[in-house]
Structure formats: structure tokens, C-alpha cells
């Protein structure tokens, strides 16, 4: 080990995560994947959306998951987030109290409690992460009150602080999120996700669907936040630029499997797997 190593503790470890939709026939695993050219089993009864997915993330580190649609990257994210169940594997998480829990064995209510202040998710569709019929401040108040804050003044103060940090004009704090532009909604979603200082944040295509210049701004913001807050992040995207800007390590998925995993710059400059080489060549073209 060199010097006072800057290595930080692993806070999220995904082990052999698998998700099969439809018939849970284990035979489907061998019949699907990059070699089979599909995530669907030949008889169509199963979709092996993700299989044998393993990676870990330390605090202060951002890990990327890149792939085309149908690659299983969002399935992995949603299984970690608890938005849907998994078929196999474990997702170990370092808890605030120092213990370690497997998220996949938790009850739905335990997982929801986790989402209050230990694990936050920023979705592509702001409507999934926000209540559009509530004000920007109210969306943050939701998380703060869920964590037990009962002081109106403190809620206002913290909401203003978060909105300021995510570059939402404070004079819009009391406007309904429905009246916000797409980029501004993502900023509010970020503010809400960070409300209770979660040690882990998952990003699912956080800038997809935004105009290029707006997306660049949101991306900048996410990068600064990751740098400053020392959170562990998982970033799921089909966009090389997003993964390149935000993550230091990443993996490539295709047809529900991991085809390659490595340092992000190495993966883009010296891709090993044929599929990754094709993907990089296409992105550079």
C-alpha cells in the first residue's frame, strides 16, 4: 500500500445480481446473453434482463453502467433501488450504524425506510422522483419530514440551501414543480435526493431527454456534487459522454450480461471486448 492511501470504504457491493422476468426457468440463463444474441429465451417465456452482475462502489466514487436499451442496465439500477425485486444475488450495503445489510432480503417497508436517508435515486423522468403537484420546496420538505424534521423554519432553510446548491432560483421555491422546465425539474430532483445527505445515490439516465446545453449544465452540477459530497454513486446511461464525465470505473452490459468492466478511460481508449470496441467506434464516429 502506498503512503496514507486515499482508499475509502466500499459502501455498496452487488454480487451476482440476476433478474428474470416471466418464467423463472433456470435453463433460460444458458439460452440467453451476448452469445445467444438475445436476453429472451428461445421459447419466449423468460427474459433474463440481468444475470451475474457484480461490482462494488466506495464512498466518494462513481461507478458507471453503460449499455444500449435492453442491455439490462436499468434493471440493475431498479433492483438496487428496490423498485422491483431481483431473482438472484445480493446487494450489500454499508449502513449508517456500521452494520451491513443485503437489500434484496429486506421487506418493502425496510427498503422504503432506506430510501429516506441512506439511498436516493435520481430518475430520468422527474415525475418518478418528484410530486409534480407540489412546490419545489414541498418536494424537499417531503424527504425532510420523512426523516423526522418537524421544524418549519429549518425545513425552509434547508430547502433553500439545497435549491441554491442545485442552482434553482430561490424565487421559484414555492412554485409547483409542474411549471418547471425539464432541466429545472432535474435540479429539483437532485435537491430532493440529497436532502438527507444519503451516502449512496443512484442516477438513471439523469440527463437523457434534456436539450444538449441543459444536459451539460445538469451534468456539471452532478459532477460537482459528487466531488464535494463524497457520496457513492451508480450512474446508469447509454451516453458515453455522461459515463466519461461522471465515473472513474464502469461496466458495459449487453443482453443482460456484463461484457466488460474496467477504468472508464481504459474502457473507452483500450476496449477489450469486441462489443465494447464496436460501441466505442460507433460513439466516436
Amino acid at each position: 500500500m502506498i503512503g496514507a492511501s486515499p482508499m475509502r470504504p466500499t459502501v455498496l457491493r452487488v454480487e451476482q445480481l440476476g433478474k428474470i422476468f416471466g418464467s423463472q426457468d433456470p435453463a433460460a440463463v444458458a439460452q440467453t446473453g451476448p452469445d445467444a444474441g438475445s436476453e429472451k429465451s428461445p421459447d419466449g417465456s423468460s427474459v433474463v434482463a440481468a444475470w451475474d452482475v457484480s461490482f462494488d462502489v466506495a464512498s466518494g466514487e462513481a461507478f458507471g453502467v453503460i449499455g444500449e436499451s435492453g442491455s439490462g442496465k436499468s434493471t440493475v439500477m431498479r433492483a438496487i433501488a428496490g423498485d422491483h425485486s431481483a431473482s438472484a444475488g445480493s446487494v450489500w450495503m454499508q449502513r449508517r450504524d456500521g452494520s451491513t445489510s443485503d437489500l434484496l432480503t429486506m421487506s418493502p417497508s425496510e427498503r422504503r425506510a432506506l430510501r429516506v436517508d441512506e439511498l436516493a435515486v435520481v430518475y430520468q423522468d422527474a415525475a418518478e422522483g418528484l410530486d409534480l403537484n407540489v412546490t419545489a420546496g414541498g418536494n424537499i420538505a417531503d424527504r425532510l419530514t420523512a426523516a423526522g424534521c418537524r421544524h418549519f423554519g429549518q425545513i425552509r432553510e434547508r430547502a433553500a440551501e439545497l435549491l441554491e446548491r442545485t442552482e434553482v432560483p430561490l424565487d421559484r421555491m414555492d412554485d409547483l414543480v409542474r411549471t418547471f422546465s425539464g432541466g429545472m425539474r432535474q435540479r429539483v430532483q437532485l435537491a430532493r435526493a440529497l436532502a438527507n445527505r444519503p451516502p449512496i445515490v443512484l442516477f438513471d439516465e439523469p440527463t437523457t431527454g434534456l436539450d444538449a446545453s441543459v444536459a451539460a449544465g445538469v451534468l456539471d452540477l452532478i459532477r460537482s456534487l459528487l466531488e464535494e459530497l463524497g457520496i457513492a454513486a451508480v450512474v446508469v446511461s447509454h451516453d458515453f459522454a455522461v459515463i466519461e464525465m461522471l465515473t472513474s470505473r464502469c461496466m458495459v452490459m449487453q443482453h443482460g450480461r456484463v461484457v466488460e468492466q474496467g477504468l472508464t478511460d481504459q474502457l473507452f481508449e483500450d476496449p477489450q471486448a469486441p462489443y465494447t470496441q464496436r460501441l466505442v467506434a460507433a460513439a466516436r464516429a
Binding site: S5, P6, D56, A58, R249
Partner: peptide
Amino acid sequence: ADAELAGIR
């Protein structure tokens, strides 16, 4: 390991 390398880079 990738993570350690990323840490000292």
C-alpha cells in the same frame, strides 16, 4: 485493482 488504481491516480 481498478478501484485502488483509481484511488491513487
